[in-house]
């Protein structure tokens, strides 16, 4: 079973967002970059599949040289190979085309992505890659079992769980709950440092032109602190809160 895991480097979730002077992107100064949390579930799942079924785990990112840090983190967790794809991408579709082109070259049986990257929160690259390859996808997966030439996955939907049967090759996108990602071991970290990262350059003709453009990036309107009841007994405070919600806010 050969698996390609898609990993993206994103700002740490605790980052305070500041807008850059351009007005269309964040100020990257002082920002701590990490592996997208959902991609950690994806890497972990691939490692578990390899441990059970054998095969090879290749982690892949599309990005600048700095993004190789994310690949090294995944190598330290236990991935076998790492690939950095360089291509001029600026939206989910061009990113997905670059990924699909590299996947065609690598010919895995399975691609695992994160459910969503926590920077631009698109949640579409996994399914776009599947569509471009004409593969099936199962998105937002919390349980995955592979058997023979296919598998069964559970995915979260409103108010329940969908159990989906699929055949390989396929794209799976990982949701929290799928597994508990392991920490990198010290020998793993040492080995990952020395590992060569394969470079794939995707021709611009494969990537095409972007279809989305960021016009502006803004901070959300600040919320001001409201009415906080202090020093009241529970009964009085509860009665006052319900009165406010009923009479003032008219919400209940």
């Amino acid at each position: 079973m050969n698996i390609v895991v898609l990993v993206k480097q994103v700002p740490d979730t605790a980052t305070r967002i500041k807008i850059a002077a351009s007005g269309t992107e964040i100020d990257r100064q002082g920002v701590n970059f990490v592996v997208n949390p959902y991609d950690e579930f994806a890497v972990e799942e691939a490692l578990r599949i390899r441990e059970k079924h054998g095969g090879q785990v290749t982690v892949l990112t599309v990005g600048e040289e700095k993004a190789e840090e994310a690949l090294r983190t995944a190598l330290a967790m236990g991935a076998d190979e790492a690939v950095r794809v360089s291509a001029a991408v600026s939206d989910p579709l061009t990113t997905a085309r670059a990924i699909a082109s590299a996947v065609k070259e690598l010919q895995p049986d399975l691609v695992i992505a994160g459910k969503q990257a926590v920077d631009d929160d698109q949640g579409q690259v996994g399914a776009l890659v599947a569509a471009l390859l004409d593969w099936p996808q199962v998105a937002v997966v919390t349980k995955l079992d592979l058997e023979g030439s296919g598998g069964v996955a559970e995915r979260e939907v409103e108010g329940g769980v969908e159990v989906v049967e699929f055949s390989l090759p396929a794209v799976i996108t990982a949701q929290k709950g799928l597994n508990e990602p392991r920490y990198a071991s010290l020998p793993g970290i040492m080995k990952a440092k020395r590992k060569e990262i394969r470079q794939i350059a995707v021709d611009q003709s494969q990537v095409g032109s972007p279809v989305l453009r960021i016009g502006a990036l803004q901070l959300p309107p600040a919320r001001s602190a409201g009415k906080v009841l202090t020093g009241m007994d529970a009964q009085a405070a509860a009665a006052e809160l319900v009165r406010l919600l009923h009479e003032e806010a008219k919400l209940i």
């Binding site: 964040i26 631009d120 972007p210 279809v211 989305l212 453009r213 960021i214 016009g215 803004q218 959300p220």
Partner: peptide, 19 residues
């Protein structure tokens, strides 16, 4: 064009669909 929260709502992006 659309407004959509990014960075989990810590910023709002204005995005245009070309094409």
């Amino acid at each position: 064009a659309a407004r959509r929260p990014v960075y989990a709502g810590k910023a709002i992006a204005e995005v245009e669909a070309t094409g």
